[in-house]
Amino acid sequence: MAVCLLDEKSNVGEDLLNQQDCDNGLKIPRSFRLLEELERGEKSTTEGFVTWGMDKDTSWFDFDGPVQWSCTIIGPPKTTCESRIYDLSIECGPDYPEFPPVVRFKTKINMKGVDSNGRLNPKEIPLLSDWKSQTTICAILQDIRKRMAHKDNNKLPQPPENATYS
């Protein structure tokens, strides 16, 4: 065992005894993190007009690979998206939550940062480009909704309702 004697030279003051340990030992395993998000989604009420859930077929096998979330955002009031229902998919890769998920619109939308396939450019969303592992799915969706109402987006002409990316 790697125990050996060390010269007594450091006499760190007793005041440090009160120094609080930081709790960086707390890393929630990916599977429990995903379940947490799922439960949050099942319990979430009408707060903020966004929903997310796992595909019905998700099961044991799918936990190691990428996990898909089916999400919706209700277009915010006083915008060209008002009251429209937008379907999105959020994919948490195997490195989630250390790395951000990939967000894609399924319903067509004209919005800054969304490419012609519906993919959201993470560079446009600080929440994704500056990713923190504690960021929830809910926070991502609410951030996108806020962006829809932003002055860069709220007047943009929108494709016909319910049109989808192929």
Partner: peptide, 23 residues
């Protein structure tokens, strides 16, 4: 006391929980 108990050289293995439990 500080001189009586073994002074420990930090090495990677020591801080693993199992080694901790043992030592």
């Amino acid at each position: 006391t500080p001189n009586r108990l073994p002074k420990l050289q930090i090495s990677e293995t020591i801080w693993k929980p199992e080694a901790y439990c043992g030592n």
